[in-house]
């Protein structure tokens, strides 16, 4: 940790995601370590997950029905804030991307004004494509709470992941102490 600004350095982020990837391999979890080309902060983790939702996501079918949604979660480094960022895209079975309105509804944010500064589309810092992103502006404060963790990315991700449907197995806890 950089004690001057209490933010996370790129090297710490890289160490943390590599540990997480190694542990993921050992327990047959599906995290992938990706490397963007020609990019200073190009390494990031990703994981695809299929979730079954019992609520209707589409606006034109008001009745409830089961739908399978594929989530592609990414953990990326934000150099401005010096912190990890969680973002994702999600598809319905027919291949269409979930809109931000559908995600707000799914994650119980639709009725709150703070949704606009919590979860919106942002540019993926490596892929430069729109991803639905948990805003990084509060993450720096959160990351400080995990100053004693041996793996801040794991501690942070297990805290914020469930907000957007991503649960981190308790097996990863051993990386943090």
């Amino acid at each position: 940790m950089d004690s001057m600004h209490l933010s996370m350095s790129w090297d710490t982020f890289l160490k943390d995601i590599k540990e997480m990837k190694a542990h993921s391999d050992s327990i047959d979890d599906d995290w992938l370590l990706n490397q963007g080309r020609n990019h200073e902060y190009g390494a990031y983790l990703s994981k695809k997950l299929v979730n079954c939702f019992s609520t209707s996501l589409s606006t034109d079918t008001p009745e409830k029905s089961d739908s399978l949604i594929t989530f592609d979660y990414h953990v990326v480094y934000n150099p401005s804030y010096g912190c990890p960022v969680l973002c994702f895209n999600a598809w319905e079975m027919n291949g269409s991307l979930l809109t931000i309105e559908q995600c707000w509804k799914q994650f119980n944010l639709a009725n709150f004004d703070y949704k606009y500064h919590t979860l919106t589309q942002m540019e993926h810092p490596v892929l430069m494509k729109p991803f639905i992103t948990l805003h990084p502006c509060k993450t720096t404060e959160l990351v400080q709470l995990f100053a004693n963790s041996k793996n801040v990315v794991v501690s942070w991700l297990s805290t914020v992941g469930p907000v957007v449907g991503l649960n981190i197995s308790s097996h990863y806890a051993k990386l943090t102490n």
């Binding site: 895209n89 809109t99 606009y116 589309q121 942002m122 729109p130």
Partner: peptide
């Protein structure tokens, strides 16, 4: 949709600007 942002309302543009 995989290439550009969806700005379905002005509030979403505002959220982007404020971020």
């Amino acid at each position: 949709e995989s290439q550009i942002f969806r700005f379905s309302t002005k509030e979403i543009v505002e959220a982007h600007f404020m971020a």
